[in-house]
């Protein structure tokens, strides 16, 4: 492999992994508080369409990202209301959110189909972008790529170094005890759900404003579900989320590069396109086969409703 090919593949892998990092980090915090929100696909779709619409009208991609974030939070609030206030089943409510978000985004996005946004130029970091091989790939990137790294450190610091993060994890491990010592379990879970929604919305905004600057119905293409699988794959640890997201990015990019290279291989494009989905299944199998890995690492109260008595 020659050097420029390596650089461009690394560049593309980082870009493809970025929305997964952002969304998975949000879901990770969400799940650390004991709430399983399967609606990531719907929140991303809403984020993507809202970001596209606002960027298209305002011409400012950052307003778009804010709008995407807001849209993700707005729909995650529906999920919170159902599961936290009304004690609805988390799995069913998450599915409902996934279906609703994808549907509503298709409805809102109809007038925006076949419009392209101007590409947002990358931000070049002086000096280190001149490093051979990796400089162009890592340090001449979209601002949201840098943001994803900042978010990674922020989440690590929050979960493991801050008092608030400790309380959030306590709520996820044992909501009854957290409640008994006076922590507002439901409020904390609401905040965690909103954070998950915000991050999923930003992830969606990255897709429609930066990655492929256009809106197509179904453009999230399962990334919300892959992000959920990534959290399991990462056994609820932020660093493994980061690594896993880039591995997935790599799988997505490799198949695109093979398809785009004109390499004469006798292998249908559709089979290559299905590789990321197979990869998701394979990592789930590998990580789940040891029951103890999951049991020891997943937040104890994940998916279970909590209601303060009395």
């Amino acid at each position: 492999m020659d050097a420029s090919l390596f650089t461009s593949m690394l560049f593309a892998t980082v870009v493809a992994g970025t929305p997964l990092i952002i969304v998975s980090l949000g879901l990770l915090v969400n799940e650390k508080a004991g709430v399983l929100n399967l609606g990531a696909e719907g929140m991303m779709a809403m984020g993507a369409v809202a970001a596209f619409a606002v960027t298209h009208h305002s011409g400012n991609p950052w307003l778009g990202v804010l709008a995407g974030m807001g849209a993700g939070m707005a729909v995650s609030l529906i999920f919170g209301l159902l599961t936290l206030t009304l004690q609805a089943n988390q799995v069913a409510s998450g599915l409902a959110l996934a279906i609703f978000g994808v549907g509503l985004s298709a409805f809102i996005g109809k007038p925006f189909e076949s419009i392209a946004l101007p590409a947002v130029p990358p931000i070049r970091i002086p000096f280190i972008a001149d490093l051979p091989l990796i400089g162009e790939a890592l340090y001449n990137q979209q601002a949201l790529v840098y943001l994803s790294w900042a978010m990674f450190w922020a989440v690590v610091w929050f979960l493991y170094r801050s008092r608030a993060g400790l309380i959030l994890r306590a709520v996820g491990e044992s909501p009854a005890s957290a409640h008994a010592i006076g922590h507002p379990v439901i409020l904390i879970r609401y905040l965690a759900v909103l954070f998950g929604g915000a991050m999923a919305g930003i992830g969606g905004a990255f897709l429609s404003v930066f990655y492929t600057p256009m809106w197509v119905e179904g453009m999230v293409a399962g990334r919300g579900w892959i992000a959920l699988a990534l959290v399991v794959f990462a056994t609820w640890r932020p660093l493994r989320v980061l690594v896993g997201a880039y591995l997935f990015g790599g799988v997505m990019i490799t198949q695109l590069f093979i398809q785009g290279s004109g390499m004469q291989i006798d292998f249908p494009a559709q089979f290559l396109s299905s590789l990321p989905y197979w990869a998701t299944i394979i990592v789930l199998v590998v990580i789940s086969r040891n029951v103890n890995t999951i049991r020891l690492n997943s937040p104890m109260s994940l998916g279970k409703p909590f209601r303060a008595e009395g």
Binding site: A229, V232, T280, I281, L284, V285, S288, R289, I294
Partner: peptide, 8 residues
């Protein structure tokens, strides 16, 4: 393998 049937 105990893989989550929802995601698979």
């Amino acid at each position: 393998f105990n893989a989550n049937e929802i995601l698979v």
